[in-house]
């Protein structure tokens, strides 16, 4: 029974993949819909990473698109400039892709660390502004690098991403983040959010955990960027301007900060909704704006704030006599 519960999420994800593929084959889903699903999952990943920083650690970062850009450009540079598909035997390509995505994540993480370390001593909204500024500076810097296309954009990136890869990374992100949040590390982060000063007196090195959350969140954004680059086949610095960062912020708080379920719901819903409203052409953004206001007025904590689906909370068996209210 327990083993079944443990593997249920994996089975669910596999079932989801099979279902989408089947519907695609049967012609129910067009490739356009599958594409949107893939975007939704990538957005989920970025939002989950941001949730670790803002939702669980209580910081306020709003420059997430910058880290997506770093990851995307880095991994694309690996597969396009360093090891272009033309010099690779086909069997090696997935491996190179995988490695490039991880490199993108690591480099974004390093950027996150370097930015987080000095700026996390700024309180609250000042941190937000610095992250926003760094995002914009990163974007300006990309414009200055001709090797990756500068202001014209980076084209010719091999389209290695597909539904399978994205589902795997999506599932992996959720799993790893869940494990982190329900570990001693995650509790330290949550303590920083709840009361930084009290956390310090509980022996939590608050700076360390804030920087750690920031680094991990940035790395996840970088991984998502790598997937995005190889899905689109093309990157442009303006894709990652601060309005894009605001999108992630909206996904996060609309879904409910501090809830992984919320991030997944928020990002998925708000990625798909504007696409559904496409027939309204220009009016869809008008409606999107109003919908956002009403959502917050009626559910200020977000769609799923403060709650979590059970499979995202690891169970710990209590000793006999202590089962209590669990």
């Amino acid at each position: 029974m327990d083993t079944l519960r443990k593997y249920l999420p994996i089975l669910g994800l596999a079932a989801f993949y099979v279902l989408v593929m089947a519907l695609r084959k049967a012609g129910v889903l067009t490739s356009y819909y599958v594409q949107i699903l893939m975007f939704a999952m990538i957005n989920c990943m970025v939002t989950l990473g941001l949730n670790l920083i803002n939702g669980f650690t209580g910081q306020f970062s709003i420059g997430q698109a910058g880290f997506v850009a770093v990851g995307g450009y880095t991994s694309a540079a690996v597969t396009t400039l360093l090891l272009p598909s033309s010099v690779l035997v086909p069997a090696l390509r997935p491996l190179v892709f995988l490695v490039s995505v991880f490199i993108g994540g690591i480099v974004a993480g390093i950027f996150g660390y370097l930015i987080g370390k000095p700026s996390l001593r700024l309180k609250g909204d000042y941190l937000a502004i610095v992250t926003l500024a760094f995002g914009e500076i990163i974007r300006s810097l990309i414009r200055l690098i001709p090797q990756v296309g500068g202001p014209r954009g980076f084209s010719g990136i091999p389209r290695y991403s597909n539904l399978l890869w994205i589902v795997l990374f999506f599932g992996g992100t959720i799993w790893v983040l869940r494990n982190y949040i329900y570990s001693s590390f995650g509790r330290a982060c949550i303590a920083c959010r709840e009361d930084e000063l009290a956390a310090g007196t509980m022996g939590v090195d608050t700076t360390k955990y804030k920087v750690m959350a920031f680094t991990i969140g940035s790395a996840i954004a970088g991984v998502a960027g790598g997937l995005l680059a190889h899905l689109l086949g093309y990157l442009h610095p303006d894709q990652f301007n601060y309005l894009k960062s605001i999108d992630f912020l909206v996904y996060l708080y609309a879904g409910g900060a501090g809830s992984m379920t919320g991030s997944i719901m928020g990002a998925t819903l708000l990625t798909i909704l504007p696409e559904m409203l496409r027939f309204l052409s220009g009016w869809r953004l008008v409606i999107y704006g109003i919908a956002l206001v009403f959502l917050m007025l009626f559910r200020p904590q977000g769609i799923y704030g403060g709650k979590e689906l059970p499979f995202l909370i690891p169970k710990i068996r209590r000793p006999e006599g202590y089962e209590g209210g669990q």
Binding site: A257, L285, V286, Y288, G289, I290, V293, M296, Q301
Partner: peptide
Amino acid sequence: PRLSALITAIGVSIFLENFPRM
């Protein structure tokens, strides 16, 4: 929660930019 007002502000902003456009 303080940030819910921030998100409504973003919503208002999206509205103010797009309504006149239409």
